[in-house]
Simulated assay, not measured.
Amino acid sequence: MTTLADGFCFGEGPRWFEGLLWFSDMLGEAVHTVTLQGAMTTLPLAGHAPSGLGFRPDGSLLVVSTENRQVLRYDGETVTTIADLSDCVPANLGDMVVDGIGRAYVGSQAFNGGVIVRIDPDDSPTIVAEDLDFPNGMVITPDGATLIVAESTARRLTAFSIGPDGSLSDRRAFADGLDGPPDGIALDAEGGVWAAMTLAHQFERIIHGGTVTDRIDMGERTAIACTLGGPEGRTLFMLTSADAYPQRLVGTKLSRLDAVMVDVPAAGMP
């Protein structure tokens, strides 16, 4: 395991894009990039608590502003607000996944009664799933047909079928009764889901039905989020923190980004 970066407050939403690992520092009000050699850049986002990230086909970065309940767009020069969801969601926003045509799926993290909102390429929002227990990390399969979401307080991964219009249907369990609340997740080419198991202090690879095939123990550190990337897609990037509850970490710089090689490469979105 290699430590790529530390000295930030609360890392979330890692994404591999164009040779860089991108992630949010939610409490530090910034988005960072890190190279495989550990060189870091920073996009300040004062007044926002960024979380979920995703890239549209034109290369623009979408950023979830959690407490403002907005989605931002960064085109490489300017940050603009493309959607204000304040009037249509029951709780602060969290993670996000963007599909191959630029539709963004954003979770509103109510402990019960959480929703997923789809933001179409024209930036119009639609609620596409309801009654979720703290919807968190999300992935989309390579064929664009299935979305998997981590329901943290329910300790399960839930799958939906994605319709041609981006609607979600056929809700079903992908894995239930997990070892801990799942946070950020990543999908590999064999259909395995890497999940940050916060209170279990582990990253686990889970296959359909709930069997855990691999575990990475983080000791006393809290597993927050992960993604697959790197030149071969076999680098698992892991964000950890000193505590599972962000409010206890305000003003600290105790989060860390580690990387480890795994056997099965990345697949799907992100």
Rank of each mutant, 00 (worst) to 15 (best):
T3P: 07
D6L: 02
E12I: 09
E18V: 08
G19R: 10
G19H: 09
G19V: 11
W22C: 06
F23W: 08
G28Y: 00
A30C: 11
Q37I: 07
T41D: 14
A46T: 15
H48F: 14
L53F: 08
D58M: 11
L62T: 05
V63S: 00
V64M: 06
V64Y: 07
V64C: 03
E67R: 14
R73F: 05
E77M: 13
V79I: 12
T80F: 02
I82Q: 04
D84V: 12
N92G: 11
Y105N: 01
A110S: 13
G114F: 02
I116M: 10
I119R: 02
D122M: 07
T126N: 07
V128N: 01
A129R: 02
D131L: 10
F134K: 04
P135W: 03
L147K: 03
E151P: 07
T153R: 00
R155K: 14
R156V: 01
L157S: 00
A159L: 11
A159E: 14
A159H: 08
F160D: 01
F160L: 08
F160G: 00
D165R: 12
S167N: 11
L168P: 03
R172K: 13
R172Q: 13
A173M: 10
D176I: 13
D183Y: 02
G184Q: 08
E190N: 12
W194Q: 06
H201P: 04
Q202W: 06
Q202I: 13
F203M: 15
R205V: 01
I207H: 12
G210V: 01
D214Q: 15
D214P: 04
R215N: 08
A223R: 00
C226S: 04
C226Y: 04
L228W: 03
P231E: 13
L236Q: 02
A242F: 06
Q247V: 15
K253T: 15
R256F: 09
R256Q: 15
D263Y: 11
V264P: 07
G268E: 08
